[in-house]
Design a protein around this nucleic acid. Structure first.
Length: 211
DNA sequence: GTCTCGATTGGCT
DNA sequence: GCCAATCGAGACA
């Protein structure tokens, strides 16, 4: 059983964190002890100092203050009335985070379906807000918790994913900064969120963010 | 109080 | 594929 990722893992470039998070396991332990888990098949990086898509500090300074908490804490962003699960990155005071966009359910599928009844299983967690609903996460309860909390934590991919298993694309659902290759998808996995237009696919297959 | 924005979702065609 | 509903948060009067 791998050790949960510690906050120190997140205290660096969110682009690298997003890449290395891919293939890992998100584990949710319900109060009754039941375990809901899923493999991270899609993740995006947001790094405000160099990211035109990151509205933190522009439109929603106060709202995004949570993104500036110390690295390795859960936080929620809301968009279009839906909660999105993120992990803070970098040192305190810098708004940077990794957004978990999709999971492949591993255990607790039945309970997830009670949280979020869907007709097709692949619709259960194939979206950033969908997985929050499926896991039954309460934003007020989870926000600000350490990323290695017993009730909600992340396990690293074992073994680490090879580059050829990862597709890097432009981010989706945003207006600015969409050309940055900061969206990481498990190649060929059916659980990723709705497909990006083919024109958005970049000619890169591995992270280029060396900073 | 009202308007606007948005990193989404789900229903309809 | 398209589009309306969604609702929390910020801006402004």
């Amino acid at each position: 059983m791998p050790t949960p990722l510690s906050p120190a893992f997140f205290d660096r470039d969110p682009v690298k964190v997003a890449r290395e998070l891919l293939g890992g396991t998100l584990v949710r332990v319900l109060p009754g002890g039941e375990v809901l888990s899923g493999r991270v098949v899609e993740a995006e990086a947001y790094d405000c100092p160099r990211d035109p898509a990151c509205t933190a500090g522009r439109f929603h300074a106060a709202r995004s203050a949570g993104m500036a908490i110390p690295a390795g804490h859960w936080l929620f962003w809301t968009a279009h009335g839906h909660p999105l699960l993120q992990v803070s990155c970098r040192e305190e005071g810098v708004s940077a985070s990794v957004l978990i966009r999709a999971l492949e359910p591993l255990s607790g599928l039945g309970t997830m379906l009670t949280h979020r009844p869907v007709t097709r299983e692949r619709d259960l967690t194939s979206g950033p807000a969908r997985l929050v609903y499926a896991l039954g996460l309460n934003p007020l309860e989870v926000s600000g918790m350490r990323v290695d909390s017993p009730g909600l934590h992340l396990l690293p991919p074992e073994p680490p994913l090879p580059d050829e298993a990862v597709t890097v694309t432009a981010r989706i659902g945003i207006r600015e900064g969409r050309n940055l290759p900061w969206r990481f998808v498990l190649r060929g996995n059916p659980w990723v969120s709705p497909a990006v237009p083919s024109m958005d696919l970049l000619a890169v297959d591995r992270p280029t963010a060396e900073s």
